[in-house]
Deep mutational scan, measured.
Amino acid sequence: VTLFVALYDYEARTEDDLSFHKGSKFQILNSSEGDWWEARSLTTGETGYIPSNYVAPV
């Protein structure tokens, strides 16, 4: 499992996005959609889309 960590805070703009804070960790579920990845937050357990340029591999 590849884990990613948030580099910045992000406020969701749609109900499909995940809001998160810098330092939040994610499991990436689908990275084939270009700049928006489907991810599960390891902090909240919620699933949604995150901007790929806001995260980096742990």
Rank of each mutant, 00 (worst) to 15 (best):
N30W: 07
E11G: 04
S52C: 13
L3I: 15
I50A: 00
Y10H: 05
G34F: 09
A6K: 00
A56S: 09
K25F: 15
R13A: 11
L42M: 11
L29H: 05
K25R: 12
F4E: 01
A6L: 02
T44V: 02
D16Q: 14
S31T: 13
V1T: 14
W37P: 00
S41I: 09
F26E: 00
G23Y: 06
Y8M: 09
E38T: 11
N53M: 11
E15F: 10
G23S: 03
V55W: 02
F26K: 00
L18R: 01
T14K: 13
K25C: 14
A12R: 08
A12Y: 02
T14E: 09
T44D: 05
E11M: 10
T2G: 12
L29K: 05
Y54R: 06
D9N: 07
A39L: 02
T14A: 12
A12D: 02
S19M: 03
T47L: 08
L29C: 08
S31K: 13
R13C: 14
E15N: 12
T14P: 03
P57I: 08
E38R: 11
I28N: 01
S41P: 01
A39F: 03
P57Y: 06
W36I: 07
S52P: 07
S19A: 06
L42K: 03
D16T: 14
T2P: 14
G23D: 06
D17M: 13
H21V: 14
A12E: 03
D16N: 15
R13E: 11
R13I: 11
D35F: 14
A39P: 00
E46Y: 07
Y49C: 11
T44A: 02
G45N: 08
A12S: 11
F20L: 04
K25A: 08
S31P: 10
F20S: 00
E38S: 08
N53K: 12
Y8S: 06
L18D: 00
V5W: 06
D16F: 15
L29R: 04
V55F: 10
Y10P: 00
K22T: 07
E33K: 14
E11R: 08
S19D: 04
E15I: 11
Y10T: 00
H21N: 12
N30M: 07
F20V: 01
T2Q: 13
T14L: 10
A6W: 01
S24G: 07
T43V: 11
S19N: 06
V5N: 02
V58H: 07
G23H: 04
T47Q: 10
Y10V: 01
F26N: 00
W37I: 06
N30Y: 07
S41T: 04
P57G: 05
V58P: 03
T14C: 15
T2I: 13
G45P: 01
G48H: 03
D35E: 12
G48W: 03
K22A: 12
D16K: 15
T44H: 03
V5Q: 07
D17N: 10
S52T: 06
Q27L: 14
S41R: 07
D35S: 09
T43F: 08
A56G: 08
I50D: 00
G23F: 04
D9E: 06
P51W: 06
V58Y: 12
N30Q: 09
E33Y: 11
P57T: 05
V55G: 01
G23Q: 03
S32I: 10
Y54Q: 05
E33T: 12
A56D: 05
A56R: 10
D35W: 09
F4Q: 04
Y8E: 08
E46P: 01
P57M: 09
R40F: 13
W36V: 07
T2C: 15
L42Y: 07
S19T: 09
K22D: 02
V5T: 05
Q27F: 14
I50T: 00
L18Q: 03
E38Q: 13
R40T: 11
E38W: 15
N53Y: 10
D17E: 15
V55I: 10
D16M: 14
N30G: 09
L18A: 01
L3V: 14
I28R: 04
G48T: 01
E15L: 11
D17H: 15
A6H: 00
L42S: 04
W36F: 10
D35G: 12
